[in-house]
Write a protein that binds this DNA or RNA. Sequence first.
DNA 1: GCTCAGGCCGTAAACGTTAACGAAGGTAAA
DNA 2: TTTACCTTCGTTAACGTTTACGGCCTGAGC
Lengths: 371, 371
Amino acid sequence: MKRKTKLLDIAEALGVSTGTVHRALHNHPGVSPMTKTRVQQMAKTLGYRPNLAARYLSSKRNLRVSVNTLQGTTSFWDEVRAGINEEARALVMENVEIEYRTYPRLGEGEEEAFEAALKAGVDGIITFPSRPQSLHSWMRRASRSSIPVVCVATDAPNTGRLAVVSIDTLASGSLAADLMGSFLGGKGKVAVTLSSLAITEHAEKYKAFATTLRSLYPKMQLQESIEDHDVESEAYQKSSELFKKNPDLAGIYVTTEASIPVLNAARDAHLLDKITFITTDLFPALVPEIRSRAVAATIYQRPRTQGRMAFRVLHEFLVEGECPSFQVTLAPHLVMRGNLDFFLQRQSLESRPQRAVRLQSASPELVEYFG
Amino acid sequence: MKRKTKLLDIAEALGVSTGTVHRALHNHPGVSPMTKTRVQQMAKTLGYRPNLAARYLSSKRNLRVSVNTLQGTTSFWDEVRAGINEEARALVMENVEIEYRTYPRLGEGEEEAFEAALKAGVDGIITFPSRPQSLHSWMRRASRSSIPVVCVATDAPNTGRLAVVSIDTLASGSLAADLMGSFLGGKGKVAVTLSSLAITEHAEKYKAFATTLRSLYPKMQLQESIEDHDVESEAYQKSSELFKKNPDLAGIYVTTEASIPVLNAARDAHLLDKITFITTDLFPALVPEIRSRAVAATIYQRPRTQGRMAFRVLHEFLVEGECPSFQVTLAPHLVMRGNLDFFLQRQSLESRPQRAVRLQSASPELVEYFG
DNA sequence: GCTCAGGCCGTAAACGTTAACGAAGGTAAA
DNA sequence: TTTACCTTCGTTAACGTTTACGGCCTGAGC
């Protein structure tokens, strides 16, 4: 196990100075093309990897990242932001500044927030592209300026974004289908509500649900899907229609957050106890519905972990220049009445601002930080 | 936002040198008690936090941790080790040496491995205490020597261990009960097999299962539990008896890894398609059973994440002297036939030695790192 | 021939912590 | 008194990278 190669090793091997090596490796001006290629070549053959500790110590620049997300209509985005915050605070090494830019509604103020982040000259952006097409040009601009962008929850294809962090849509849709089939004994009419088939994630979930249902439970009948376009009234209205047309509906899978209006529509049609609900996400209004077993199960999208992962990927890229993975997909959690309390307790516990700290044989200097 | 206080600030404020401050803060010999308290006091008032980058850079000592686990009879411990390895390699900053000490069977060679780790003078230990009582004295010895020990999968109470990382037993048992009730329509006889009621984790899972079943599905009848003491033949034999005595058994929840002998017993009794199986963990032999729907669902204990968390907690303590949490409980994942492929793909993908890299519209400057 | 600009490169001082070395002072034994 | 030794503390050289500064050289302009 030999010592790691450092700048000085490269410098001595070529008979130059560390300053030159540094400039060559970082494309800084003041190096002849000839020297530059020689340095880069030598760095590669020696397997040079920068010592990050030394780098941090030497340059005190602190990274700035902008987090552009929806305002917390539900708790989902609060959790995402909490996850980002946690992971940022876990980085004791450096100081990462996080600037939160939120917009009130889907697609509203989204471009402005992105533009503001670029104008402010941040080093990286974590964003929820609620309207990918409208952000398209801004994201390409960021890409051209070499400002990495990480998407959370929803992808924005062909925008040059660095990475995307999301729940695996296939696993979600297939799990929902398998559960639905199991709960209903493999027969009956089922339906799906989604935001819009134009959104990749929702289309994929729907497809996975349909495919799995067909292959595992061929006797079940899948009705046409409902698109609510993220409008609650539309969700209520369209699902009311659905229930009217299909009084024998046995189950429904709500892939969006808008499960409450669908539940209310079923309640008003007096079909609540006839229909097995599988919903998405976990928020306060959903808790009593799960507890009363109106909702059989909900697929939790782990917003906090999504936030953590997004920050981690972005930070790793900013610091090391490489990206561990361009697509991080998480397995969803299944929440039913049985394990509901576990998740509720966990949320409330983790949302406490300070970290839980119990000292045990720690170096004395640390005691104070948490007194 | 003022500059962070460093050793020199404390030193100047007290009219001493940084060397003294350093020694005082680390309980190194050669500092008068009077000076020591003054330094610690001043560190507190100035809000000193060590600069870890400088610390790494300065001290070339690399941490050594011992990982004491079972040999991979199933893939569980391979996954745990893989998770530890991943997290260790993600630490680009420093070099952490990991020494794996494995023992062939439950309780066999466990003490020797622990003793060897202590003798070798490691800085920390991650262990699976298969027989907590036999490890008790060794762990207390480690605690007295200020060597942090992190338990994975199973806790070892009253041993002075630093932390424990495990799956939440309540969530597992309750989820299993709720699923069982849902699958069976809320009625029928069900049973549980476990290793031994003397092991906390299994007792908790059983209790959670029983409690949830009683409260959510009062019509269901829970039979007496089976203890297999981690012996496969015992599992087969006892479950055969159970099936003979209860030909109308509707479901069984296997909380241990030993689900195959139970499945075989049911198969041999020609009851396989009459009984709903909920099992634990995910290993190759279980895959065809899930695919054929002999197993309705399995509760995946996320060994890789357990390994990652264990290493993370230990490392954070070793480096910062503080521990984020003394009890890390993870939510289990539910694997059914529908989403089985997602987990299989993920396992095979993640177990590849190099990191997964999928290029997708990456910024041009990045392509080279993965060429 | 002299200056001046600009390209190229070496030098050295940071960054904050660690740890080895040594100096000062006091105490005790010879 | 000398010698030896201990406690307490200051000094200083690392650790590897960044960056400001300055020096050398070549070529162009006067």
